[in-house]
Design a protein around this nucleic acid. Structure first.
Lengths: 119, 119
DNA sequence: AACTTGATCAACTAAGCAGTTGAATACATC
DNA sequence: GATGTATTCAACTGCTTAGTTGATCAAGTT
């Protein structure tokens, strides 16, 4: 039942799986948005929403398992902290392919332009 | 049964839902990676994988519904094209919060440094 | 020790999704 | 018009997940 991949290559895959899946839920994205403003406890995070505290707790677990947040301890409280580096890894993945695609298109555009005007 | 949100605010939400969900699948990420190299047909995209063509077709539909790819027509073929702008919108979302978080931390670091060394 | 607050665990339900097989559609060629 | 090729549709199965309620644990308060 271990969800943790052994092989480091699939481990990175797994981390991307979880991170993107975590961000596919609008409530979890709102939690991320809130945490970007500063650390917060489960109760604080739950306050604006009309779902149960347990639901929020589960969402935070998903974010934690995805490596997007970390949690510490302050008496009974479990403050959540957004890991900006984790967000950075996602943008790095996206940007790699976006730039590759965009470069190709601009080369294609240049080719087409030279075809139209073969001075 | 319409999956398209009416209100423009939830429409953007919906687009993010679908885009992040689409990228949470490793096979779909591989399709994106392949398409970053250049447009391709369903058969070409399916070739490296051991799943059925129908499965690939479904994955492409998910990517299309998420706005990550567009599709044209060439006789029976349906070539797929990666929409780099869609990837850009995702990085924009991520970067907004990453930078906000990082800025806060650097301010906090500065504060702590000044506390340690109140010259 | 009893009580309150903060958070999680456990069990369940309803919904969604990745994959399959088999049938159907759309276009191109013979 | 029959055949082959590229792709999608339809129906089904197994697994995962968001949400709920009720119980439990952990730490501070009286």
């Amino acid at each position: 039942m271990s969800n943790v991949a052994a092989d480091p290559e699939t481990a990175e895959e797994d981390r991307l799986n979880r991170a993107f899946a975590a961000l596919s839920d609008p409530l979890r994205r709102k939690l991320v948005a809130r945490l970007a403003q500063g650390d917060a406890t489960v109760n604080e995070l739950a306050e604006p929403f009309s779902v149960t505290l347990q639901a929020i707790s589960k969402h935070l677990r998903v974010l934690e398992d995805a490596g997007l947040i970390t949690r510490s301890r302050d008496a009974q409280r479990r403050p959540c902290h957004l890991d900006s580096q984790a967000l950075g890894r996602l943008t790095a993945w996206l940007e790699g392919y976006r730039q590759a695609a965009e470069e190709r298109y601009s080369r294609l555009d240049a080719l087409l332009a030279s075809q139209e005007d073969p001075s």
